[in-house]
Write a protein that binds this DNA or RNA. Structure first.
Lengths: 140, 140
DNA sequence: ACCACTATGTATAAAAG
DNA sequence: TCTTTTATACATAGTGG
């Protein structure tokens, strides 16, 4: 999909990798959202950018997993006064749109500890979900 | 992409959802593999099919995470004599191709307990990786 | 439920602003 | 560097086996 056929091999230029990464990540996330809605299935995507920034996507209506959004938004209310305006705006946008795609590290650096904690809770839920789903499958 | 434009909304027919799911999941996985190679980034995808079957994809060269493949293949050697031929063939194929895409529950049902254990280890590694990556970012 | 076909919509490579 | 444009490659909707 482009002017020329692209060989699938590591791009040598770092900048090219970064540019390609954001473009293609966007495309994949769009597809994942569509799959999530069309087929009503749970989807979780985790990417690390060439510079190490993680992007987590969790499809809507993924019970349990979606709670990370609520906690993020609550956090913003509790600490509203201490935060920079752009952060609050971002969190509000995430909450209001019921969107669950975001770069966790675009939060202020001061919140990294909290962010990591959320990751941990999130992964515990993922693990629980995994066990639960597998049990259902075993019965079937 | 298709004969007609498809509205992105839940497909009412279960069979249609299932068919659409496998087709689109394949497409997303292909894209994720390309991203993984082109940009040399770590990628983790987790889907649950409309019937609840999980598919886990971990990009190649995702250190630590790829160990699940080695353990699966070792398992197949240890228990080779006890396993059905198709299982061994599947595991060999996974190992030889260094592919890291597979439906974990396409393993024989008897191995579900082991499979769950692998999930748990896998998630622990993912968690560790997450913490490690975030630390690096904090320094930068 | 899965493969094949093929017309058509979509993503994106390269170029341009 | 980012955004926009354009040409092209690719993914897939609908269909049939």
């Amino acid at each position: 999909m482009g002017r020329k056929k692209l060989k699938i091999q590591r791009l040598e230029d770092l900048k090219a990798r970064q540019a390609k990464y954001s473009k293609r990540k966007t495309g994949i996330l769009k597809k994942a959202k569509e799959l999530n809605i069309l087929c009503e299935v749970d989807v979780v995507l985790l990417f690390f950018s060439p510079s190490g920034r993680p992007t987590l996507f969790v499809g809507q209506n993924s019970t349990g997993l979606s709670s990370i959004l609520k906690r993020l938004s609550n956090l913003s209310f509790e600490e509203r006064e201490e935060r920079r305006a752009y952060t609050i705006e971002m969190l509000k946008k995430i909450y209001e749109n019921s969107e669950s795609e975001f770069d966790l590290l675009s939060l202020p650096h001061a919140t990294n500890a909290d962010t990591l904690k959320l990751y941990e809770d999130e992964l515990q839920e993922l693990k629980d979900k995994l066990v639960e789903k597998s049990k259902i499958l075993r019965i079937n």
